[in-house]
């Protein structure tokens, strides 16, 4: 019964997200603020459905819904949505939705393609570290997703502003750069936490806190990329366009760490 309810809630969340994404696109075409406002509300409503879907699945499975491809993908989408809503309502600029909503829909679409079967946890996953490690990953990936969306707004800003109607909906370059940096800072802090908690857990489960497993290695590569972003920004003044490109590349790495590594590079994290 729980699975059926979760299925309805997940489908409702996806449908509402799709509606929100479509309205953000409509806003991009018409520049009518009303469309963006409704889109924001729809994404918020979708987030509520999505949260309920995760809660119901958690109750039905008797554990945190973070243990297989579907569960992590839907949690990942939830993390992106959470971070998007935090930044969207904090900074109130509609153009963010135009770029973030498709990312959100892409990830939840990927989740929808995975098997939704509820399986019992294998012994290695039966640990309180699962919740800590994966929750942090969800926030980290979500924050990087938002930084990517903000950076895409930055990179397209000049082109968009050829149409004067965009002026009230896109912040100044400096503000965009600052928002993207804040999202990267949050993501970087959580990514570091993910790697450290992952190492502690791996030591307990596999007897080695670092095994150069593809997932670990790609997390490290992503960490290097964002570390370089932060260093170049702080010490070399790499802001604006170059920093935006870095943030987009960083998120591409995040996506590969999740989707690419799981599907192309099997390792100890193959179940994730």
């Amino acid at each position: 019964m729980f699975l059926t309810i979760e299925n309805y809630l997940f489908t409702a969340a996806m449908a509402v997200y799709l509606g929100g994404t479509a309205l953000f696109f409509l806003f991009a075409v018409t520049k009518k603020e009303r469309h963006a406002r409704i889109a924001g509300v729809l994404i918020t409503v979708g987030f509520v459905f999505h949260t309920l879907a995760l809660v119901v699945r958690g109750i039905g499975a008797g554990r945190l819904p973070m243990a297989n491809q579907y569960e992590f993908a839907t949690s990942f989408a939830w993390g992106i949505c959470l971070c998007f809503l935090v930044f969207y309502y904090r900074y109130r600029f509609y153009a963010l939705g135009v770029f973030a909503a498709p990312i959100l829909f892409l990830v939840i679409g990927y989740a929808a393609m995975q098997s939704r079967e509820v399986r019992e946890l294998m012994p290695a996953l039966r640990s309180s570290w699962l919740g800590i490690h994966v929750s942090a990953a969800i926030i980290a990936y979500g924050a990087f997703g938002v930084s990517c969306a903000v950076s895409m707004v930055f990179l397209c800003r000049a082109r968009l502003l050829k149409n004067k109607a965009w002026e009230s909906y896109i912040p100044e370059e400096e503000a965009l750069d600052r928002i993207s940096y804040r999202a990267v800072s949050l993501g970087f802090l959580f990514l570091t936490f993910v790697m450290i908690t992952g190492a502690i857990w791996a030591e307990r489960a596999w007897g080695s806190y670092w095994s150069w497993d593809p997932k670990e290695t790609w997390s490290l590569i992503t960490w290097f990329i964002y570390a370089a972003y932060l260093h170049l920004r702080m010490n070399r003044g790499w802001r604006g366009k170059r920093a935006a490109v870095f943030a987009v590349v960083g998120f591409a790495c995040v996506l590969f760490t999740y989707v690419g590594v799981n599907t192309l590079l099997p390792g100890l994290h193959s179940y994730a």
């Binding site: 290695t217 790609w218 290097f224 590079l265």
Partner: peptide, 9 residues
């Protein structure tokens, strides 16, 4: 180092 890790993975 990132390139080496890439090759290693």
């Amino acid at each position: 180092l990132a390139s080496a890790c890439l090759a290693g993975s």
